[in-house]
Every structure is written in C-alpha cells, then in structure tokens.
Amino acid sequence: MSQPQSHTRPTGLAIWLIIAGVIGWWAAFQLTLEKIFLLENPDAKAACDFSVLVQCGKNIESAQGNVFGFSNPILGVACWVAPIVVGMAILAHARFAKWFWWLFWLGHLFAIAFVCWLIFESIFILHTLCPWCMVTWSVTIPSFFAVTIHLLRSGVWPLPAKGRGIAGRLMSYVPLMTIVAYGIVILLAQIRLNAIPNVWHTIQIALGWV
C-alpha cells in the first residue's frame, strides 16, 4: 500500500528533486563536454551552436561562463547531485534536521540568484540563448519555488499554523509560478533579442524545413 503524502516525508517534492537533479546534471555534463571539446579544438564550433543567437560556445568561453575561475558547468555537475541524493533519501524515509533544510534552501537560493544573473548576462550582455543553459534555468526556477514553499509549510520557518496551511496550498501553484517566471524570461528575450522568430527560424533550419 502506498504511503500518504506528508510534509515530513514529501514524496512529491522528492520525486521532483530527483527529476530536476538528473536533468540539471545532464545539462551541466553536456556543457562540460563542450568546454573540453573547445579547449582541445580552439578553432572548432560547439555542437550546440545553432546560430548567432542560439549557441552555447560564446557563453562557456566568456568571463560569465567562468565566474569562479573554472567553467560554470563543473559547478553544476557537482551541485546537481545534491537534490538527487536528498530526493532519494526522502523516498528512503530519511528525516532531516531543520539546519539541514536551511542549508539545502541556501543552496537553492544561491542557485536561483546565480541563474537570474546568468539570464541577465546572457540576454543583455552576451546576446545569446544557450540551449543547455536554458535547460538548467528551467529546472532551477521551479526547484527554488518548491523547496522554499516546503520550508514554509513544514515549519522549518517559524510560521503559525494558519501560515503553514496557506504555504501548503501554495505548493499546488508552483507550476503556475514557474510558467509566469518562464514568461518573464521569454518576454525579456523577445524585447532585447527578438528571440521568438529567431529561435523558430533556427528550429526550422535544424529540422531541414527551410
């Protein structure tokens, strides 16, 4: 018989953390491979360079792509393991202390702040949309929302019972919150880069439609 969902053992959150972690890790791993390829072949073009707008070569070769003195995707390969491990541990009935959830949330806070900065740099400074970077953005945003709301509803943040109840109901709105966040990014990209027609044209070329 399946176990009921609870805030102390949030199976839905656990499953999402595993899915997000795998997707984020794979995107970071692919970018790491592209970085290694470009280091070995300085005159070559990255496999994810589809057009002047849709490319990852410019991003991973830029200063923004090497913020900490090494390629950003290496950080992703290391850090995306954390949500996978936490998600698996929750499914294995592990319970975590409040300090652990705080550290886990701080990791997600760093991730969302870093992603927001990278989105700004990519759109307004580099004028590119990196495919694998966007995959990372797409899972970081809902992960931050979900973990934040879980801390609110589970009492890790000291809220009264009514506040925890409201937070619990908010979890069902994470998809909507995520769509709104995606919409803001798309709007910024469209205003700055005229992204929608350019990306659509790139897709048509890649599929051989034009």
Rank of each mutant, 00 (worst) to 15 (best):
P142K: 00
H201C: 03
L31D: 13
Y173K: 10
L31I: 05
V174L: 07
R164K: 15
P142E: 03
V81W: 13
A92F: 12
A82N: 08
V86G: 01
D49S: 02
P142C: 04
I149T: 06
V77L: 14
I112Y: 11
R169P: 04
I74S: 04
V81G: 06
L17E: 07
Q64E: 14
P83I: 12
L17H: 03
S71R: 04
T140E: 11
L33I: 10
L39M: 14
F70V: 11
W200T: 10
P158L: 00
A27F: 08
H127K: 13
K98C: 04
K58R: 13
N59C: 05
L17K: 06
I166F: 11
V22R: 03
I60D: 04
F100C: 07
V52C: 00
V67W: 13
R192P: 01
P160N: 15
C116I: 11
S138V: 08
G208M: 03
A28F: 05
E121R: 11
A94M: 12
H108A: 13
I90M: 09
G65I: 01
G165W: 03
A89E: 00
L109Q: 09
I15Q: 07
A111H: 14
I203H: 01
H7K: 13
P160Y: 02
Q204R: 13
F110G: 10
T128I: 15
A82T: 15
A44W: 00
I90W: 07
I19Y: 03
P4I: 09
V147P: 07
S2Q: 11
W157F: 15
Q64M: 08
W209F: 08
E40V: 01
Q5M: 12
C130E: 01
L170P: 06
